[in-house]
Design a protein around this nucleic acid. Structure first.
Lengths: 337, 337
DNA sequence: TTGTATGCGTTATCAT
DNA sequence: ATGATAACGCATACAA
């Protein structure tokens, strides 16, 4: 497969390469006479010419690509976010390069290096933990960067995230309204802003109402169904009379409910449970899960927009966009009797 | 941020760029004296030098990137596949460029064009439908390509997929063993190999056993929970005495079960249901879903391996790898009484 | 072992 | 309106 270059096209159209280049460039094509442009276009068509973005990038100093790092591609929450990013980016003819760090700082570092070597025009990181602050600050000086989903305070990096503080508060207020006074929460990793925010929002709202809240740390590594089970088991061991539990994501909530059931406790009859994220199928569970919904697609779109606006040098844009969560009341929470 | 080039490094190390290039190239670094290499390395370190992969690619004729196209990033099945791909690729220092077609042929076409313009070294397509055959055949002559998950018969493109025929058969045999004789299946899109295979495998096994099977087409556009509901509703309308249903994925199975429940029918008491994919949380449903599990991670790894082996010109490798599915029996199927 | 020179494919500048 | 040419950053063939 003899790769067709601009030179070939120019030769066939009997023009100089620079003319061919102009004719094929969307914005400069007006500088060339219509008839010759047509000739070039036809030649390109005939040869099956494809611009070489590598060469173009080298010459122009921009690659037309944006790196995107996510922690976990299997996290159902991330799909909409990526779609939002891709949508906003595709709109301006940029190609997202998506990668997964598996929440490993080492992997994140490697990925960033690769992306920088690829000379991405921008970077969107949804996988940042507090301990990655130094790394990401260094990255951010090399390429326009925005954080999404997870914030890193004092990093100085612009961010689009959801309001986890409000999310935790929403969960707390819902349970308080139902008459609960003693609570437990299954906390997620402490050095991830989303989880830290949920913990603090919940704790503060409970405290403000004079309630008591027990933190279960067992699930602080990976917030999975299994972690939810073991967290619930711990909770039952040292039960201090809590009647409601807030899990920092739906997986843990589901695990907890399963564990409760196994111990003969029914949700919500014996204990109320609130999850977080509203991932698919939570509405199909028995009972359907009360949870907090986040605007993933919107978040992705805004993150990409923020990146683009920064890339254009208009530093005037907001550095921090926070999206409101929404409480979805289903059947795992009920009024105290 | 004045971008550091090889020239800068060479200048600081007081060597020629070619020497610097050699010193920094992992495999050619043996050609340079240890002391000078150290000097170059230190200079690179000091300046924070990053190779420019664009320029390197232009010169070497390979970019070190592989395009990956998926139909739907939110499909929980795809996560492991992508991880498998990334793992195999990362191992050889290749960067996967992941993209999503949303199952649109138009989008697929655009994406392929972009990826080709990016001069990816290879392409893995998990989003191919039958109608994309022409497009993908054209793509495959330009760049080493492998299909994954979804096959396209008579495309001549190597493929790694699961054995959907066997998957359908597994479902059928399980239900037959339980004593069922009249069936319905909620079919997925006809022009996607995975669904076509499931349909055919199920149908054939039923026919071979002298059973009867009704195909419900209502869900043939997007196989979602909603499609499962409406499919089940259709099924109930024209009920012909079937006692078991095979849904072509878990979402549809879940939707069907919900619809049945709404009509006062219990699963598996009144009707047995088998899903497909074993996506997360299906084990947490009430009742837990009987389904067919596919080796996603393994599939991704093998697809990447196949691509790499092809890229190396060893055309001797198998053109078609088919992975065995596994039946996961849970509680939505039961013995006929 | 190191340096010199050239070209990868494109675009921008400067002429014409 | 078009052509000639240089340069982007790097890697290699060849020379020394």
């Amino acid at each position: 497969m003899p790769t067709v270059t601009l030179k070939d096209v120019a030769a066939l159209a009997e023009v100089n390469v620079s003319t061919a280049s102009r004719a094929l460039s969307p914005d400069k094509s007006s500088l060339v006479r219509a008839s010759t442009r047509d000739r070039v276009l036809r030649a390109a068509q005939e040869l099956g010419y494809r611009g070489n973005l590598q060469a173009s990038a080298l010459r122009r100093g921009r690659t037309g690509t944006v790196g995107v790092v996510v922690a976990d591609l299997s996290n159902p929450f991330i799909g909409p976010v990526l779609r939002g990013i891709a949508s906003a980016l595709g709109h301006r003819d940029l190609l997202p390069i998506m990668t997964e760090s598996r929440d490993s700082s080492e992997a994140l570092s490697k990925i960033c290096n690769k992306l920088l070597a690829q000379r991405v025009d921008g970077l969107i990181v949804t996988a940042g933990r507090y301990r990655d602050r130094t790394l990401l600050k260094a990255v951010a000086v090399e390429v326009p960067t925005v954080l999404a989903v997870r914030d890193i305070p004092r990093s100085g990096i612009p961010v689009v995230c959801h309001d986890d503080l409000a999310g935790g508060r929403l969960a707390a207020e819902h349970l308080l309204t139902l008459g609960h006074r003693k609570f437990a929460q299954l906390v997620g990793p402490r050095d991830v802003s989303s989880f830290a925010g949920r913990a603090e929002g919940f704790r503060a709202a409970i405290a403000a109402a004079g309630g008591r809240c027990l933190d279960i740390e067992g699930a602080s590594v990976l917030p999975t169904v299994e972690a939810g089970r073991s967290g619930a088991a711990q909770f039952l061991d040292r039960n201090e009379g809590a009647t409601a539990m807030f899990a920092h994501n739906d997986s843990m909530a589901i695990g907890a409910i399963a564990e409760f059931r196994q111990h003969g406790l029914q949700v919500p009859r014996d204990i109320s449970v609130v999850g977080f994220n509203d991932v698919p199928l939570t509405d199909q569970l028995r009972p359907p899960l009360t949870t907090v919904r986040l605007p993933g697609y919107e978040l992705g779109r805004l993150a990409a927009d923020l990146l683009l606006s920064r890339g254009e040098g208009s530093e005037s844009t907001a550095e921090r966009v926070v999206l409101a969560p929404e409480l979805v009341i289903r059947d795992t929470t009920k009024q105290m009797t």
